[in-house]
Design a binder for these strands. Structure first.
Length: 732
DNA sequence: CTCGTGGTGCTTTTT
DNA sequence: GCACCACGAG
């Protein structure tokens, strides 16, 4: 017992008093407000480890919920290292994986059959589209994406079609249409034995309310932990509440300033609701920032100070003052990318690694130019996100075959692949088939099996259909005796799927490669999984994302959207495209878009607080967007953050613009007047004079020597970043 | 049934 | 500018 206590106590070493308090407060409800860079992950892991090491309960009585599989995996790994315990029975997972796990075990209690299929967003949208078409509506008018999104939001708020109709503020006629689609959508999901992401959570909640489910899962978990709590939606909140109901030991960790997913149903006010639901909740605020220097933190704090905040907190840098954020002004997106890359190259020369750098942008579209310029410079990079591997058409096709084997009622998968390659399921045939099956409320496969015979003649057609059914039956029987990878191989073989591809077409060749990669993923899976079934494999890939692929050890510059940047940190951070309409995004600019504007601000805040040593923001005077060149205005966030543009070189915005337009960079450099310092002359500690700011001392010189040299100078009461070529500095 | 073209319409996207 | 989809011609 003493040894145990001793071991638990060492877990507190190296934690600050607040962190320590959070770790040892294991009983009762606890809300940890963790500012950016305040050691949140550390607290969560140590707290989990502490509970286990102290022997308060066994691993199977703890559940920790995070938002990505990757975060979950790392957490588990870390807890294992910290405790030396076997953590296999510890539930560390995403909300969705936890839901799946419970439903696979006891879904029958709430009407979920064992072999249910999971529909991802693409599958849901495809289903919505079929419903809209079946109604005879034009999918260009009634946009499936729009409908699918509304349905998904409704589920985030736990609203069934009737609840939703009652609550919606949309125009009656519009609302009725959506209601109709939503109802039909639910009907068809049920018929297909499928659950979408929203239903997974809703069914899990239903299960936790069921007496038997409550007994099995509600009472099992003595300790509940939730990460990124500010991004939970209403249903996830309810799930947390139910999981914690029996024992009341629930710890949620979050930061309302970093809530960036309200647009998809998250509710950052859950942070306030927590204290209402658990009136005795203890609140611990972590405000010591171990990541960034004070200069960066000040800018970020200034920015976020423009929001109305739920829980205001002031972060303090533990690392000292450091440099203040820099601003890059560029003529266009190419100039912007070139300046960023130049700055990166300067850092590389000074000994920094490529992986110490990250470039963030609001929209993926901005990555292209950066990629071009990085490639041209021979600097390796890795792109976060982009189309997920598992979202590619060819992968979804193969997956659809597999899903159909596990759950033959999955009409979505059936329709996707029944005619790939062509085997007699043309448009007309399918139309008839769907109509006949719908009439009998049967899935397509069930209809083919049961009623294939009693349809009118067409013997040739029936033969083809029978062959298809037989092929799937054979594959299905393989499932019982062969491993996942062998089944995948057989599927490719027997369906002759790969014959769709032309070996001479480079795009097809890529698809071919992707399918091969998929095959090797299947192999990896069956070698490593606890339960190497096809259903488990499908589950994993449906709930997997590309975020899970980011490799922090690879020495490459990271390109990422601001959203995907959450949770990461880099020595040198660049945020490009700081322009009105981009960051903040155009959709947040309207009169009645205050909430959106605040979310944009939080997004910028998240990006800025990723930086450890230097932060550079940039904007361009013009940029090609949607195929045309547009004049751009610098983002309001820059001045809100105190990253003051105009003062950097001593002119006004208009002067800057006219100065740039029509000039090439070469004509910009150098100075005509004697006494004015040129590039490559200054070094740290030099005293200089600026015509507006007076005299100051050079703090440091970035990109020394070339025409983009930037010097940081401390004037009487402010620190400025100036470009030597514009600043017209003289020596004192 | 497949291929080509033209029209459209475009944040973000943990699961 | 680009990617995706629907529709029409072959």
């Amino acid at each position: 017992m003493a040894a145990r206590t001793e071991r638990a106590r060492t877990l507190l070493d190296g934690l600050n008093p607040e962190q320590r308090e959070a770790v040892i407060t294991t009983e009762g409800p606890l809300l940890v407000l963790a500012g950016a860079g305040s050691g949140k992950t550390r607290v969560i892991c140590h707290r989990l480890a502490y509970i286990l090491a102290a022997g308060f309960c066994g691993p199977r009585n703890v559940i920790a919920v995070t938002f990505t599989n990757k975060a979950a995996g790392e957490m588990k790994e870390r807890v294992s290292r910290l405790t030396g315990l076997d953590v296999r029975s510890l539930w560390v997972s995403t909300f969705h994986s936890a839901a799946v796990r419970m439903l696979r075990a006891a879904g029958n209690l709430v009407g979920v059959k064992r072999d249910f299929t999971i529909y991802d967003e693409g599958d849901s949208e495809a289903l919505v589209k079929r419903i809209i078409k079946d109604r005879g509506w034009d999918p260009r008018e009634e946009k499936p994406r729009h409908y699918a999104e509304l349905i998904s939001r409704a589920k985030d708020d736990a609203l069934d079609p009737d609840d939703w109709l009652e609550k919606t503020f949309l125009h009656r006629a519009v609302a009725e249409k959506i209601y109709e689609v939503y109802r039909e959508y639910e009907k068809r999901l049920a018929r297909a034995g499928a659950l979408d992401f929203g239903s997974l959570l809703l069914r899990a909640v239903k299960l936790l309310r069921h007496p038997e489910g409550k007994r099995r899962f509600g009472e099992r978990f003595q300790y509940v932990m939730v990460d990124e709590y500010q991004d939970t939606n209403a249903v996830q909140y309810e799930m947390v509440r139910l999981l914690a109901a029996a024992h009341g030991n629930v710890c949620v960790v979050g930061d309302d300033d970093q809530a960036i997913y309200e647009w998809r149903g998250a509710n950052r006010a859950n942070i306030l609701a927590f204290e209402k639901t658990f009136p005795k909740a203890k609140v611990i605020t972590l405000t010591r920032n171990y990541r960034s220097t004070q200069g960066i933190l000040d800018a970020a704090s200034h920015l976020i100070g423009n929001n109305t905040r739920l829980r205001e907190k002031k972060l303090r840098a533990e690392r000292g003052s450091g440099s203040v954020p820099r601003l890059i002004r560029a003529r266009n997106e190419y100039d912007e990318a070139e300046q960023v890359v130049r700055a990166i190259r300067t850092n590389l020369k000074a000994g920094a690694a490529k992986k110490d750098h990250a470039v963030f942008y609001r929209v993926h579209a901005l990555s292209r130019v950066l990629e071009e310029v990085l490639s041209a410079s021979g600097i390796e990079y890795q792109l976060l996100r982009g189309v997920s591997f598992y979202q590619r058409a060819e992968i979804k096709d193969v997956v659809a075959y597999l899903k159909l084997l596990v759950n033959p009622d999955d009409d979505g998968s059936f329709l996707r692949i029944c005619n790939k390659p062509a085997r007699g399921f043309g448009a007309k045939t399918l139309e008839r088939l769907v109509a006949a099956a719908t009439e009998r409320n049967l899935s397509l496969m069930a209809y083919l099996r049961k009623c294939g015979e009693d349809r009118e003649n067409r013997p040739a057609q029936r033969k083809k259909e029978a062959a298809f059914v037989e092929m799937l039956d054979e594959l299905q029987s393989l499932l019982k005796k062969e491993s996942v990878s062998i089944v995948v191989r057989e599927v490719l073989e027997r369906t002759r799927y790969l014959e769709l591809y032309d070996q001479n077409d480079p795009e097809d060749l890529q698809r071919f490669e992707n399918v091969r990669e998929f095959l090797s993923a299947a192999q990896d899976f069956e070698e490593s999984a606890d339960e190497p079934t096809l259903a488990a494999f499908l589950e994993r890939i449906t709930l997997a994302t590309d975020a899970d692929d980011y490799d922090p050890s690879a020495d490459r510059v990271v390109l990422s959207t601001l959203h995907a940047a959450k949770g990461l940190e880099f020595r040198h951070v660049f945020i490009v495209g700081c322009e009105e309409g981009l960051l903040p995004h155009g959709r947040a600019l309207g009169e009645e878009a205050d909430a959106e504007m605040e979310e944009e601000r939080r997004l910028a805040y998240v990006g800025m607080t990723r930086a450890k040593d230097t932060l550079t923001m940039s904007y361009a005077f013009e940029r090609r967007m949607y195929g045309q060149i547009q004049a751009r205005t610098r983002s309001r966030f820059l001045s809100e953050a105190g990253i003051d543009d105009t003062s950097d070189w001593g002119g006004t915005e208009r002067e800057t613009r006219s100065f740039f337009v029509g000039r090439t960079p070469a004509t910009l450099s150098g100075s005509r007047d004697t006494g004015i310092v040129g590039c490559g002359v200054l070094s740290e500690g030099d005293s200089v004079r600026h015509h507006r700011f007076g005299t100051g001392v050079v703090l440091y010189v970035a990109e020394s020597g070339d025409e983009n040299e930037v010097v940081q100078i401390r004037f009487k009461n402010k620190v400025k970043n100036l470009m030597t070529k514009f600043a017209h500095l003289t020596r004192v």
